[in-house]
Design a binder for these strands. Structure first.
Lengths: 233, 233
DNA sequence: ATGCATAGATTGTCGGACAAGTTGACCGGT
DNA sequence: ACCGGTCAACTTGTCCGACAATCTATGCAT
């Protein structure tokens, strides 16, 4: 079966399609991908398949050590915790900065409205507009590197979601409320409050995901400082 | 002269050597590097040279667009500002977290002592132990991704230093004092003070580097909040 | 069952080949 | 002399085929 793809680069096309396959969970985590497999699947030369695999490895879609064959990444509990902790480190500082300017991007408001719209329609898989909410906040700092780093983390979150397909998720209702509260705190210039709420918001998601991925609740390096935070409901 | 490197991979060896050449400024910024150039220089196949170049591009040592030949990166004032702002975003949150535990790594103390030792000997190029001080702080959070991200930023700083070779630098005396103060604030649990001092510390370096790279002092997105900070001397 | 040896599979690297795209120079028109 | 377009040389993208080095797994001997 040959997929019809013509972008600007054969390697790009193969990379994009394989990435889509992994995100759609049509390639289960741990699946071995031989260079020849890829070459035959898309009818390209092995060198091309090799280049594609190497890029997917550097994009953390596949993993491979020296002379071994590449496999679709398996995100474990420790990985999710690391991913989410890194998100917290970056994004909480971003929120502090935004709170100082008392300014948040319109895209984040729209993204939160999209979540509400999906929830109203009974759709519980709201991870896409959810990530848009967060990336919009980070992007509003206008730092190319910060944005790219956060996008890379967001992609790993997507991968994680793909592997979890169907297990329990957080209630959209709470997510929407906390997002709104975050924007409110930013608008009010409450840097500490915004950072603390974000910490709680992401820490809760982190623990839920980590447990869903089969990990026992590990000893967390840092507990959120929620003392300064009024409850949200 | 052949360097004795038993890496397991020819591509790795080529990548490492080219990286070293760029860091030593033996390949000036903007220098064009043809795939054939690399292949002939190291007597390897073009495919190997191609792979090496692609990895150097993804490591931000070279830059290249579609069908054009790769060039050694040229870091401009805007890039330095972006690099340093990203450093500030990440590291200031890291310092907040460390201050909560009132704990800093011994490696950062040692690194600062190394700076002092070099300064005593009249050496002004202290960027190496300086970066070790900062990476040690970030590494002590024990987040694989956070550490890797910061290392990538640190590498760009190194590239920048290589391009600036010889222009004015900040006084090691002030750097040493501020580093010591940072550790002191962490030990005292003063998260806000540590974050603010770090912001000043890195913002000053950022502006000096940006100016040295020929940029006018641009409109900064965020000014450091030094109100809460007592002066250091 | 454990450990070693061999065979098959897979990756790393090579050389050469051709099409497609980019760059720069040459040439003609105004 | 300036401008614009055509063409050639160079460079990259992709392919094919080949071989050595390495990894995996099967099977044999103890």
């Amino acid at each position: 079966m040959v997929r019809r793809i013509t972008v600007t680069s054969v390697v790009d096309a193969v990379v994009n399609d394989l990435k889509a396959l992994v995100l759609a969970n049509e390639l289960a985590p741990g699946t071995a991908l031989t260079e020849n497999d890829v070459a035959e699947r898309y009818e390209v030369a092995r060198a091309t398949a090799k280049a594609a695999i190497e890029r997917l490895v550097s994009d953390k879609v596949l993993e491979r050590s020296n002379h071994r064959t590449a496999r679709v990444v398996m995100i474990g509990p420790d990985d999710v915790r690391d991913i989410y902790n890194t998100r917290i480190y970056l994004e909480s500082e971003v929120l502090r900065r935004l709170a100082r300017t008392r300014h948040y991007p319109i895209e984040s408001v729209r993204a939160n409205e999209e979540i509400r719209a999906m929830w109203m329609q009974g759709e519980w898989n709201i991870s896409d507009p959810d990530m848009r909410f967060h990336t919009a906040l980070v992007a509003s700092l206008k730092s190319r590197r910060t944005k790219k780093i956060y996008q890379s983390l967001a992609f790993e979150v997507k991968l994680c979601m793909a592997q979890l397909q169907g297990t329990q998720r957080l209630s959209p209702e709470i997510i929407i409320a906390e997002h709104a509260k975050l924007l409110e705190l930013i608008g009010a210039g409450d840097a500490v409050g915004a950072a603390n709420l974000l910490d709680e918001h992401l820490s809760r998601a982190r623990e839920l995901l980590a447990e869903s991925l089969g990990g026992v609740a590990g000893p967390e390096a840092f507990v959120p400082c929620s003392a300064l935070l009024e409850s949200v409901h």
